[in-house]
Design a protein around this nucleic acid. Structure first.
Lengths: 225, 225
DNA sequence: TAAAATTAAACAAACGTTTAATTGAGATTG
DNA sequence: CAATCTCAATTAAACGTTTGTTTAATTTTA
C-alpha cells in the first residue's frame, strides 16, 4: 500500500506554544556557544552535538538557524520593561535613588544573562538589517523614552541639571557594562585577580561596577546651583 | 624536457617587506567587509571580489585568511604607543590637561580607523585564544601601564584623588567609544539626526563624545579636599 | 493505530586552500 | 636590436570539508 502520511512540521505549527524542555536545552546551549564563538562561528552541528540532540531537531523545532536566534531573543527580551515602568511612577522614591535603582537593575539583569547580552553586543555590531536588529532598536527606543521621562521629572524637581544628553549617558552605561562583559578576562589579568573564584569575582565586579556607574551618573546629572 | 620550476610562494618569502599597493587594497577592503559582517561572516571570495583580485591572490600574498587578519592588526597597532610616551614625560602640561589630551588622542585615533576598531571590538568578544587576542592584550597592558603612571604623577601633585580604579576608568572610556562606534546608526535614529551628512555627523559626535568623556574623567579624578 | 518525535543519510551550496597552467615585464643573450 | 630566458604575478579550475537544510524511514508515545 501507499503511505500518504504527511511529515509533521513543528516549526510552522508552533505559534505561541510553551517551550518544551528539549527546546529550552537547545536554546541555552546555543546561547553559550554563540556567545563564545559568534553566530557565524557556531554551526548547527556544534549546537546539536553540545545539546546532545540530532541535527535535524533544530530545523524541526525552530525552522532554521536564524529563527533559533530569533527565538532566543524573543525569550530574553520579553520581560525587560515591566519593572522599569513602576519605578518611574513611584512618588516615594527620590530622583537619584531612582537612577541608582535603574543602574542596579541593568547591572543585575545583564550579569545574570551574560551569554545573551554578549550575543546582543555582537549583533549590534553587524551592519546588515535584520529582524533581530530591529527588535534591539525597538527595545532601546522604549527604554530610552522611559529614562528620558525619569530625567525630565528629576529636572522639574530641580534635582538634575538641564541639557543632559540622555543617549550619550546611556551609551556610557551600556558601553561600560558591555566592555566589562566582553573583556572580563582582560580585566582579571590586568588587575591580578586570577586567583579569585569565578563566583567571587562576579560578585566583586558587579559591586564595583555599580558604584562606579553611580558616581559617573551623579557627576553628569547633579545640579550644582 | 621536464619543468622543474618551483612555484614562488610570496607569503613565506615575506618577512618585513614593504606592502605593495595591491596588498594594501586587499587589506583595506577586508577591513571594511569584516567590520560590517564579522570575520566568519566574510568569505575570502567576498574580499577578493570586492577588491577585484583573484581568490588565490589572498593565499598567495598572506598565506591564509587568518594571517590576513593578523597582517591588518600588525599594520594598525604599530604606531599606538609612541606619542603617549612623550605626553607623559612633558613637564609643562598640567595633570588634567594631560588626561584631556589623552582622551582627544583616543577619540581621534579610533574615529579615524573606525573599521579596524570595530574589528578589534569583535575580536575581543570571542572566547578562544589566538595570536590576535594576545596582541590586543599586550597593547592594552602597555597602555594601561602608561596611564597608571600618568595618574600616579597627578596624585603625587595632589591634583587627583587617591584610590582610582584605572582599569575601570579605561573600561568606561573604551566602552563608551566602542558602544558609540558600533551603534552609531542607533544613536542617529534615537536622536533624529538622520538628515545630517555623514561627515557632519562624525564631526559633531567626536566633539560631543570628547566633552562627555572629559566631564566624566574630571568627576572621577578630581580631588575635592 | 495514528500522530509526533527522532534518526541516519543525502542534498546542493559555500567554504578556505591548492594546483597547474599561463601571462607579463625585465634581464640576458647572440 | 631582436630573440630568448627567467621568474614573479595572475588565472581558472579543482580539492576536500563543512555548511544549513531536507528527505524518508523508523521509533516512541498515547
Amino acid at each position: 500500500m501507499f503511505n500518504f502520511k504527511q511529515p509533521f512540521n513543528f516549526a510552522s505549527a508552533m505559534s505561541k506554544t510553551e517551550l518544551t524542555e528539549k527546546q529550552l536545552a537547545i536554546m541555552e546551549t546555543a546561547e553559550k556557544l554563540i556567545a563564545d564563538n559568534g553566530y557565524d562561528g557556531t554551526s548547527i552541528r556544534d549546537i546539536a552535538h553540545a545539546a546532545d540532540v540530532n541535527v535535524a531537531m533544530i530545523s524541526y523545532y525552530f525552522g532554521s538557524k536564524e529563527k533559533l536566534l530569533q527565538a532566543i531573543f524573543e525569550r530574553r527580551t520579553e520581560y525587560w520593561r515591566t519593572n522599569l515602568e513602576s519605578l518611574i511612577e513611584d512618588k516615594s522614591v527620590g530622583s537619584f535613588e531612582k537612577i541608582y535603582k535603574l543602574i542596579d537593575n541593568y547591572v543585575e539583569k545583564i550579569f545574570n544573562q551574560t551569554c545573551f547580552h554578549r550575543i546582543m553586543a555582537q549583533q549590534q555590531m553587524t551592519n546588515e538589517d535584520s529582524p533581530i536588529k530591529d527588535l534591539i532598536l525597538e527595545t532601546k527606543k522604549g527604554n530610552q523614552e522611559l529614562i528620558k521621562r525619569l530625567i525630565q521629572s528629576g529636572q522639574k524637581k530641580g534635582d538634575f541639571k538641564k541639557n543632559v544628553d540622555t543617549a550619550l549617558m546611556m551609551t556610557t552605561m551600556m558601553g561600560t557594562i558591555n566592555q566589562l562583559l566582553t573583556t572580563q578576562h582582560h580585566y582579571k589579568v590586568l588587575n591580578n585577580l586570577q586567583d579569585l573564584s569565578e563566583e567571587e569575582f562576579q560578585k566583586q565586579i558587579k559591586k564595583k561596577l555599580s558604584t562606579h556607574l553611580k558616581a559617573i551618573f551623579k557627576a553628569i546629572l547633579q545640579n550644582e546651583e
